[in-house]
Computed example of a mutant assay.
Amino acid sequence: MSVLPDCYCPVDGTRVPSGALDWCCPACRGPLDLDYSPTPAPLKSLAGRVNSLWRYAECLPLGEAECTLGEGRTPVVRLTEKVSAKLDFLMPTLSFKDRGAVMLAALAGRLRPERVVADSSGNAGAAVAAYCARAQLPCTVFVPEGTSAKKLEQIGAHGARLEVVAGDREAAAVAARAVADESGVFYASHVHNPYFLHGTKTYVHELWEDLGGRLPDVLVVPVGNGTLLLGAALAVAELHTAGLIDRRPALHAVQAAAVAPLAAAWQAGADDLGDDVVAVVPTFAEGIAIPRPPRARQILRAVRESGGAFHTVSEDQIRHAQLDLASRGLYVESTGVACWAATREGGSVAAVLNGRAAVVPLCGAGAKTGLAVSRSV
Rank of each mutant, 00 (worst) to 15 (best):
residue 8 Y to E: 08
residue 9 C to T: 06
residue 17 P to R: 15
residue 17 P to E: 13
residue 19 G to R: 05
residue 19 G to C: 10
residue 19 G to L: 08
residue 20 A to F: 06
residue 28 C to S: 12
residue 28 C to F: 07
residue 30 G to M: 10
residue 31 P to S: 02
residue 34 L to A: 02
residue 39 T to G: 10
residue 39 T to D: 12
residue 43 L to S: 12
residue 47 A to Q: 10
residue 56 Y to V: 11
residue 56 Y to G: 11
residue 64 E to S: 14
residue 72 G to D: 14
residue 73 R to Y: 13
residue 74 T to E: 13
residue 75 P to R: 03
residue 77 V to T: 15
residue 79 L to C: 07
residue 82 K to G: 08
residue 83 V to L: 09
residue 89 F to G: 05
residue 95 S to D: 04
residue 98 D to V: 03
residue 100 G to L: 04
residue 101 A to P: 13
residue 115 R to F: 10
residue 116 V to K: 00
residue 117 V to P: 09
residue 122 G to H: 00
residue 123 N to I: 03
residue 124 A to E: 05
residue 126 A to P: 04
residue 126 A to W: 03
residue 128 V to E: 09
residue 133 A to G: 15
residue 140 T to V: 14
residue 140 T to H: 10
residue 142 F to N: 07
residue 142 F to D: 00
residue 145 E to R: 05
residue 145 E to I: 00
residue 149 A to P: 02
residue 151 K to R: 15
residue 151 K to E: 05
residue 161 R to F: 02
residue 163 E to Y: 06
residue 165 V to F: 01
residue 166 A to V: 09
residue 168 D to Q: 01
residue 169 R to W: 01
residue 170 E to T: 00
residue 177 R to Q: 15
residue 178 A to L: 13
residue 181 D to T: 14
residue 182 E to P: 03
residue 183 S to P: 14
residue 185 V to Q: 06
residue 193 N to P: 04
residue 197 L to P: 07
residue 199 G to W: 04
residue 203 Y to V: 06
residue 204 V to N: 11
residue 205 H to G: 07
residue 205 H to C: 13
residue 207 L to N: 00
residue 209 E to H: 14
residue 214 R to I: 08
residue 216 P to R: 08
residue 220 V to D: 07
residue 223 V to E: 05
residue 225 N to R: 01
residue 234 L to K: 15
residue 234 L to E: 04
residue 235 A to M: 12
residue 236 V to Q: 07
residue 236 V to K: 10
residue 241 T to L: 12
residue 241 T to I: 06
residue 243 G to K: 08
residue 245 I to Q: 08
residue 246 D to N: 14
residue 247 R to M: 08
residue 248 R to E: 14
residue 250 A to D: 11
residue 254 V to L: 08
residue 256 A to W: 01
residue 260 A to L: 07
residue 261 P to V: 00
residue 263 A to R: 02
residue 267 Q to W: 11
residue 271 D to A: 09
residue 272 D to M: 08
residue 274 G to F: 09
residue 274 G to M: 06
residue 278 V to R: 01
residue 285 A to V: 09
residue 286 E to V: 00
residue 288 I to S: 02
residue 289 A to F: 03
residue 294 P to A: 10
residue 306 S to A: 09
residue 307 G to D: 12
residue 308 G to I: 08
residue 313 V to E: 05
residue 316 D to N: 11
residue 317 Q to W: 10
residue 320 H to R: 14
residue 324 D to N: 12
residue 324 D to M: 02
residue 326 A to V: 07
residue 328 R to I: 06
residue 329 G to E: 10
residue 330 L to N: 05
residue 333 E to G: 04
residue 334 S to H: 14
residue 338 A to C: 15
residue 344 R to W: 03
residue 345 E to A: 15
residue 348 S to N: 13
residue 349 V to L: 04
residue 350 A to G: 05
residue 351 A to M: 01
residue 351 A to K: 10
residue 352 V to E: 11
residue 355 G to F: 05
residue 356 R to W: 05
residue 356 R to G: 10
residue 362 L to H: 11
residue 364 G to Y: 03
residue 368 K to Q: 07
residue 370 G to P: 00
residue 371 L to E: 02
residue 375 R to Y: 04
residue 375 R to F: 01
